[in-house]
């Protein structure tokens, strides 16, 4: 019902933001890269307990950390080690950062694999946990704003630690994490763009004074705001339906934003030296990881309305 932060939650957000503000500038050598992951910043957040919020405080706080860290230019792995893993496997200590993959995708490029110490595999009903040996990983060049890597050889899942019956929970919290991370990245991209259109002058006045720009920004802002609330509700309720809704809204609703924000930043918006791509390309990576716009929606539809002729669904309604 009420998504205004408590004093403690606000203090947590402020603290994360303070650390990120102190580590906001990319090194000069990294300014023309697609992705910048700083192990020292990752360790700083971990050492200060922010990535342990799910266990020490609760899932909303963990989702808030994901949301805030997603605003950084640096790629920070908070989603899996800070939210998905502890909510799926509350009694298991994992070495972070953690990469996450579905069993059928083990041969593909995996987000965060080159910086991960642990790999969680969604094996349908079960989850398998494997340590990551970086000697067995090759980096995959990508524009997606995250460090992607590929396993040189398919791992022996039988050699990992298997958690029976945890697959559904993993997929639920994966969606919550994606929704929170997209909401944070989108918020940062919008704020960045708003700053730009206030300052950039064309025809003697700010770009942001044109209604053609204002109105589209307002539409995108509304979508992002709604997505944030949905992500937080899904973290709060722990409901599978809420997680599906948050994930679907994030993946589908964000699409128009990706074009508009680059458009409003003009020519600079499509250069690598500009920061916008760090957030928007990450959002695209998360969209793809979620199954894509159509794929995710159809997956949810299949869960909600599996067979049109099943009468039980009529009473369930929606």
């Amino acid at each position: 019902m009420d998504f205004q932060l408590t004093d403690d939650q606000q203090a947590l957000v402020d603290a994360v933001q303070a650390i990120l503000a102190d580590n906001a500038d990319l090194p000069q050598s990294e300014r023309l890269t697609y992705c910048c992951h700083d192990p020292a910043l990752q360790a700083l957040l971990e050492d200060n307990g922010f990535l342990g919020a799910a266990r020490s405080i609760g899932p909303i706080e963990a989702a808030l950390v994901v949301h805030e860290t997603a605003k950084s230019l640096f790629s920070i792995e908070a989603m899996v080690c800070g939210l998905v893993a502890p909510m799926t496997l509350p009694d298991v200590e994992l070495a972070g950062p953690v990469a996450l993959v579905t069993e059928r995708d083990l041969s593909k490029a995996i987000r965060n694999l080159t910086v991960a110490r642990t790999l969680l595999v969604d094996c349908g009903d079960d989850v398998v946990m494997l340590p990551v040996d970086q000697a067995e990983v090759v980096s995959v060049p990508t524009i997606y704003g995250y460090p992607f890597g590929r396993l040189i050889a398919l791992p022996d899942l039988a050699g990992g630690q298997r958690f029976v019956g945890k697959g559904a929970a993993l997929r639920q919290w994966w969606r919550v994490g994606i929704a929170a991370e997209i909401a944070g990245a989108a918020r940062a991209a919008i704020d960045f763009t708003i700053d730009y259109v206030k300052q950039r002058q064309v025809f003697g006045r700010p770009v942001g004074s044109f209604q053609s720009v204002q109105h589209r920004l307002v539409q995108r802002h509304g979508t992002v705001r709604a997505g944030y609330y949905l992500a937080m509700r899904a973290a709060w309720s722990g409901s599978v339906l809420d997680a599906d809704i948050a994930g679907a809204h994030a993946v589908q609703g964000i699409q128009a934003l990706l074009f508009d924000l680059h458009q409003f930043n003009g020519g600079m918006g499509v250069t690598l030296e500009y920061s916008l791509h760090f957030w928007t390309y990450r959002i695209r990576a998360l969209q793809a990881e979620a199954g894509g716009i159509t794929g995710m929606a159809l997956d949810i539809a299949d869960k909600r309305w599996p067979e049109p002729s099943v009468p039980a669904l009529a009473s369930e309604g929606c």
Binding site: F3, Q4, Q252, G253
Partner: peptide, 24 residues
Amino acid sequence: RRRMVDVRTRIEALRLLVNNQLSA
């Protein structure tokens, strides 16, 4: 089916936006 999921999720989003105003 894709459009139904889209509408269904936005109905929930609307309700949260309303809840937030009512809370205020």
